[in-house]
Amino acid sequence: MTALRFAVTDGWTITRRDLLHWRRAPSIAVITLLFPVLLLLMFSYLLGGGMAVPDGGDYREFLVPGMAAMVMLFGLETTFTSVATDATRGITDRFRSLPMSPSAVVLGRAGADLLQSLATIAVLIGAGLLVGWRWHNGLGPALGALAMLILLRIALLAVGIFLGLLAADPQAVVAMQILVWPFGFLSNVFTSPATMPGWLGTIADANPVSATVAAVRELCGNPGWPGTSWFAENATLLAVVWPLVLLAIFFPLAVRRYQRLNR
């Protein structure tokens, strides 16, 4: 019982450390919050004119769910950088030498990163509403869509913690930042996988990001392309299954990696 209580209170202490970071370095927080909005505006106003959307729908309606998933993907960089920085700077070792709850390090990280993603999503939704995006099926499904996004973020959290502990080098985030883009583009975020060469389109449909985006569009009643591949047809199911699979793989890996820091 006390173990659980300390896991929560210590975890919150660590989450609050990140909140203090935002206050101490507000410019970084503002850039993180506004970057997806910048992308949304760039893609909808600079490139959006050339984009066809089924049923004469609005490209911005199409784009907002995709950008929301991109926010989750960008969160991977945040998780990775924080974990790798703490590992190299000796902060992780300091935590490990304190009589605090061992799971609090992960819980605190999860809390801080989820809060950051939620704040970024909130700003994106605000911007989306301003450029004409709406949810059309009522609040319930819209919250369901939010839950899908959070589920994806939680899965990426495990991935980020594992990779951060593995690399233990904050510089490696550059590699992550580069990798996030093919992951984002090889999906249905910006355009229909059906317009890609056949096999590439299938990969794009199979991308976990695509599943989440398709599910969010469905739940919010935003336009999307009817898929032809098995992955596209079962997107809503996959939006739940994919993150759970990622979690099942990477959560144990991350825990093991953390426990093996004493090797």
Binding site: F6, D10, T13, I14, R17, L20, H21, R24, A25, R89, G90, I91, D93, R94, F95, L98, P99, M100, A104
Partner: peptide
């Protein structure tokens, strides 16, 4: 092994809290 972004006081408060 101190947090670079936080102030000195915030660092010690953080570690104090983690000492319960």
């Amino acid at each position: 092994a101190v947090d670079e972004v936080l102030s000195g006081r915030e660092n010690l408060q953080l570690f104090g809290r983690l000492h319960h």
